[in-house]
Amino acid sequence: MKKQNKIVLFATFLLSASLLAGCGGDETEKTQIGVLQFGSFTALENVKKGFVKTLEGSKLADQISFNIQNPQANSTTNTQMAATLAAESDLVLGIATPSATALKSAVDSVGTGIPVLFAAVTNPIGANLVNDLVLPGENVTGVTDLGPIAEGLQLVLDFGGVDQVTSLFTATETNSVYQAGIAEAFLSSKGVSSSRTTITNAGEITSAIASIPEEVDAVFIATDDTIANSISLVRGAVESLDASRSKPLIVFGADSGLVEGTTFSMGIDYEASGVQVAKQALKILQDGAQAGSLSVESCDNHTISINKTFAEKEGLDLPESLLSKEGATIL
């Protein structure tokens, strides 16, 4: 009796599971496009928006169907979703590094060889997605989200009197660590010293900023999802620190989404990068191009956001060259 109950329980579970599994496969004729978006961060949402909108507006619109999955930044769910998408799609897009690498590994092991596109990845070579940016080979290509860090930092230096810049970033985010490295290389070429202020979660932001020493003149914030999500916290911490400093901190962000907490920010337009990766997808689906023959693109649509209120509060004179930049949003 006892055993029978358990067997019945288990069988019911399996049966209901397989019934549900059957529900998934009603789209039989269409080209399946799998999208794995690592989390619900603003930048990643914008990439998805650009990608889906472009494909739905193309000639292929009625021949494709999307399967968009989001593991909510959970790494095990990410892996399992990648395995499902790799086996069931004709083309996959990974948004953010963990999703893109998981998709590539899954496609490699399942062996379907379907094209893998990536977006919102800063360092595709370091993440082993591609070996070469111009001619990636194999089945992977995409759009990087590396912003104009050097250009932005040059503008910071143009304020004058900037001798030390600290990079504020989350140590667990691959993209941020890479960008901090780029910033440091640029700064040392200009003879400006640099330091690092790292956090591992949003809870540490306030104390990390409070510990920035007096010698530091400016803060550089990379495209960092954790910090972008708590940017108002950054602002509050910077303002309370400024009250005890002789000179206010200049805060520069490499992501236009950071505008609510930075003096000015300069980054790529994530929606435009989604559009760009959708165009690569169209080249593959329409023209039959091999993913490996398409170069990895960088996004040239830069957005500049200037926060005049903060600048005035901090007594900074924004240079005319910055204010008159084309397409700049001034708050």
Binding site: G22, G24, G25, T28, T31, Q32, A87, E88, D90
Partner: peptide
């Protein structure tokens, strides 16, 4: 590369 529901299962 047409997928049937059997692949899903």
């Amino acid at each position: 590369m047409i997928l049937s529901s059997s692949t899903s299962i």
